[in-house]
Amino acid sequence: MVKKGSKATVLIIEDEDDIRTFASRVLELEGYHVLQAVDGDEGLRLARQGGISLVLLDLRLPVRDGWAVLSQMKGDPELSSIPVVVFTASAAAPQRSRALAAGVADYLVKPLSAASLKKSISRILRQKRRR
């Protein structure tokens, strides 16, 4: 659990309303502060405002897709250290390898239970704090 007063902020970039609401609500119930974006551009804008501990990123997004967001983040010294967890409906192995090669912290395939989402996010944030 995250201690009070040191709430981590998670940015969720996801275009499907129901899925974004699900992820947001679970993470809020787990004590995180949550920001939401519905497309890649909005996501990057929120990320650049600072204070983000982790990004939960859908890959198939309108305007600017998840891959573009990922490469922008990894190429930006301000953002490159923020862990990115991919949350995608694509289970294909090549996609997964490509994402891991691009430096994502975890690759979550939809559908996913509330518990698995919670576990992944808390594990990645724990690792980050230890570094």
């Binding site: 499907e16 129901d18 899925i19 699900f22 992820a23 609500r25 679970v26 119930l29 198939r60 409906a89 694509s90 289970a91 294909a92 395939v109 939809k110 559908p111 996913l112 239970s113 509330a114 518990a115 989402l117």
Partner: peptide
């Protein structure tokens, strides 16, 4: 096939996500 699987996963995510959330956080 790839697209069908992708498109089915989207509503499945809603079903799996919300149902597990309802089970896990019922009281809250």
């Amino acid at each position: 096939l790839a697209n069908v699987s992708h498109e089915l996963r989207t509503p499945l995510t809603t079903i799996k996500g919300y149902s597990t959330m309802l089970l896990d956080y019922d009281r809250r």
